[in-house]
Design a protein around this nucleic acid. Sequence first.
DNA 1: ACCATTGCATAGCCGGGCTATGTAAAATGG
DNA 2: CCATTTTACATAGCCCGGCTATGCAATGGT
Lengths: 155, 155
Amino acid sequence: MSTEENTDLKTLLGALVSSGHRLTRLAATATDDQRSPAVWRTLSALSSYGPVRLGELARLSRVTQPTMTKIVRNLDDLDWIKRIVDVEDKRAWLIAATPKGLAALAEWRDTLASALLPHFSGLDAGDLAAMQRVVEILDERAALDGSAAFEGEIA
Amino acid sequence: MSTEENTDLKTLLGALVSSGHRLTRLAATATDDQRSPAVWRTLSALSSYGPVRLGELARLSRVTQPTMTKIVRNLDDLDWIKRIVDVEDKRAWLIAATPKGLAALAEWRDTLASALLPHFSGLDAGDLAAMQRVVEILDERAALDGSAAFEGEIA
DNA sequence: ACCATTGCATAGCCGGGCTATGTAAAATGG
DNA sequence: CCATTTTACATAGCCCGGCTATGCAATGGT
């Protein structure tokens, strides 16, 4: 991979992050959403990884443990997660999404996507394919396990 | 556009927003960044639109005016923006990015993108093209003017 | 048994979000 | 011209998600 290609990828990555920020605000204003990205991100992680320790959930979400403690307390109040005693370690909690939480996540996605639809009308099949591919790339590369595993393979 | 295609686009949009959240956290942890997405988003908007009123900047960024007042005060303290008296209206300020602010934005993008590169190694030209296209779509559709203009054209 | 490490909660701070309110300037209408 | 309404921004207060630092209890190692 030449320097020029690296520069192109670099430029793209910077632009992708910026565009993502913009999309985040669009998403926040497109619906009367009372919850933050952190809530959905956390529920999404629980949905993907199943019950995990609070500290591990923090790691997966790339936030510090006290931050995750706060988020989890919030989700607990909503009955969107439940705490499970980790029988192997009395210090630890396993955090699991409840059916109510998963339903809320699904509903959020649906409501949000519906609200965003008008902003993205008129895209052709090629555009959809591009979006699909980028989602795949991000899910693979921005996920902690995926990223770590990939680096392991290269190194 | 059939219902099925709408469903696919809906699913994609929801996934894209989620993936974007994940990328945001990756970006936040990939660098020792002391500034938030709001700072960069605002500087980026000023870079794109040139000097605008504080209220208009809030609108462009999809946040409320008091929020933007805070962000602008922050940027002002850093000498990354300057306030310009709007000669047409004594109540209003024009907010412009300073060269120092624009340099900081460019440096952030470079530093961030460099830090992200290892996570995204091994992508092929098709992947880059997909990312390029998605950035274009988001910039066009998530931007306030672009989105509004497009809706106007359809209606 | 003792000590270091680990897991989570708490404390404190900051900034970005919001709604509500206040002040001054500008626009509007009689 | 003047009273009223609207507009532009600042301030206040609240909440939440970030962080670092610290505390307490459990666990692991020697």
